[in-house]
Structures are given as structure tokens and as C-alpha cells.
């Protein structure tokens, strides 16, 4: 085991992927708690498909991937919220609409320009080779911003997640905080999807929150537990992926699935012993 770890840490690109991934996993789990509880679980999925469309476009136009993807995904996040708030489209259908449209557009653009090649495959399912120095700095900044904002607005995020009408009645500008959460989610997804892949990044948002909810009974407990589970599962998944040579994103998600069942079982057992 120790030998395996020292092997992993001797590769610069693996260390970079570990650092970026842990930070993204941390941010995703914090945001995920609020998103899952507000019945916004699928927003991660929708936004990552938009991200795929944007990355394909950037590749076709020979532009820097993040410079295109970040603004496009942020705009999509705002749009999804607006659609839901106006009540013109139900939240889940709006997400399904936008995500399949963006995925189709991405596939069209790539097949017209370069054809579906290895680069596209790595966008779909993630690649740890894609992390450069710039990504490390960007993810450090992002993680810092998400953490600081999350701690500062923790009580407000709890209030609008639990009961938006009460929060608004006592003067909390709930739409502002919803926008903030959407913005941070968009950034987290764009950075995380390159390791995890378009198809799998939403697992990083949903699983830790649901896992924590099996056992924890307070909001603070859920948040702390989700953060710990997320980082732990990411590291576990990376080691697994190195050991048995499987794609990183899929391995991380599978470790999360394992953790979910473990917590679910523990929750069931605890409920039984209490009776």
C-alpha cells in the first residue's frame, strides 16, 4: 500500500490531479447538500452536458477550453434558475431540455470539425492527464472562494434551503443566494468535469450529500460528513483507478456508490437497534 502511494506521488500529473480533484470534491459536496435538499440534484448533470457542448465548441474553434466553458456554463446555470423561478417550465424538464440540446450540439460540432476522437472521449469520461499548472491554481482559487462564501453564508444557505418563504419573509434575499449557489456550482462543474468526465461529474455533487443524509440528522452534521466522505471517496477512487488501471472518474463514482450503501446499511441498522 505504502509503495503504491509513493508510486502515485512520484508522478507530477497525478499529484496535480489529486490536489485539484480533492478541492473540487470538497466544493461539490458542500454545494451538493443544498442542491439535493432543494430538489436540484439534476442541475449538475444538466450543467456538465452544457460544459461538454462548450468544450467541443472551444476545440473546434481552437480556443482555450476554460475561457469558453466557464461563461457558457454560468449563463446556463442562471438560465435554468430563471426558467424555474418564472414557472414557465418545470425545473426537471428545463434541465432535461437544456442538457440534451447541449450534448447534441457538442456532438454535432465535433463530428463536423475533427470527428469523434480521443479528445472527445476524454471529455466524456474524464482524464487525469488534462490537469496543467494553471488548473491547479484555478481550482485552489475556486475552492477558496467556495469555502469562504459557504462559511460566511452558512446560516442563510440553511434558511433558504429549509424554507425559502420564511427566509424571504424575514428579509433574506433568497434569489441572490440561489444565484450564488448556481454560479459556484457552474464553476465547480467546469473544473471538475475534466477529471471526472461530463457523464460522471454530477455523481460528485449528489452522492456525498445523499450518503451523509443516511446517517446524519442535523444540517451541520450532513455538511461536515458530506465533505469528509467526498474527499475520502475521491482519494480512494484515485488509488483504485491507479491500482487496477481504470478511468479515474468512474472509479471515484464507484467508491462513492460503495460508501452510499455502507452508510445506508448503517442507517438501517441504527434505526433497528433504536426500536
Amino acid at each position: 500500500m505504502m509503495q503504491l502511494l509513493s508510486e502515485i506521488f512520484s508522478y507530477g500529473f497525478l499529484v496535480r490531479a489529486m490536489v485539484v480533484g480533492c478541492l473540487v470534491a470538497l466544493c461539490a459536496s458542500l454545494l451538493g447538500v443544498s442542491l439535493v435538499l432543494k430538489r436540484y440534484s439534476m442541475i449538475g448533470d444538466g450543467l456538465s452536458h452544457v460544459g461538454f457542448g462548450a468544450l467541443s465548441l472551444a476545440m473546434a474553434l481552437n480556443m482555450a477550453p476554460l475561457a469558453v466553458a466557464i461563461p457558457v456554463v454560468v449563463v446556463a446555470a442562471f438560465l435554468l434558475l430563471r426558467l424555474r423561478e418564472n414557472g414557465k417550465l418545470r425545473g426537471d424538464s428545463a434541465i432535461a431540455l437544456i442538457s440534451s440540446a447541449a450534448l447534441a450540439a457538442g456532438v454535432m460540432v465535433t463530428s463536423l470539425s475533427s470527428g469523434l476522437n480521443a479528445d472527445v472521449y476524454s471529455y466524456m469520461f474524464g482524464s487525469i492527464l488534462s490537469m496543467g499548472e494553471g488548473d491547479v491554481i484555478l481550482s485552489l482559487v475556486l475552492a477558496g472562494v467556495v469555502l469562504v462564501l459557504f462559511i460566511l453564508f452558512y446560516n442563510k444557505i440553511f434558511a433558504i434551503t429549509f424554507d425559502e418563504s420564511f427566509a424571504r419573509a424575514t428579509g433574506t434575499r433568497s434569489s441572490l443566494y440561489s444565484l450564488l449557489i448556481a454560479l459556484l456550482t457552474a464553476l465547480t462543474i467546469v473544473i471538475g468535469m475534466r477529471i471526472m468526465g461530463t457523464m460522471l461529474i454530477s455523481g460528485l455533487i449528489i452522492f456525498p450529500a445523499l450518503t451523509a443524509m443516511c446517517l446524519c440528522r442535523s444540517f451541520k452534521g450532513v455538511v461536515l460528513c458530506a465533505a469528509a466522505v467526498s474527499v475520502f471517496c475521491f482519494l480512494g477512487g484515485m488509488i483504485l483507478s491507479y491500482a487496477i488501471a481504470t478511468p479515474a472518474g468512474a472509479s471515484v463514482v464507484m467508491v462513492n456508490v460503495g460508501a452510499y450503501f455502507l452508510f445506508w446499511l448503517m442507517g438501517k441498522l441504527r434505526a433497528r437497534t433504536r426500536i
Binding site: L37, F158, A159, F162, D163, T170, T172, R217, S218
Partner: peptide
């Protein structure tokens, strides 16, 4: 919703 009673009551002070 996973929240303790205290967390819920305390959120009334937010305003």
C-alpha cells in the same frame, strides 16, 4: 430535511 430542531428555531433569528 435533515436539520436539528435547534438549527430550525435558530434560523428565525436570521432577519
Amino acid at each position: 430535511f435533515p436539520a436539528s430542531v435547534q438549527e430550525v428555531v435558530l434560523s428565525g433569528c436570521l432577519g
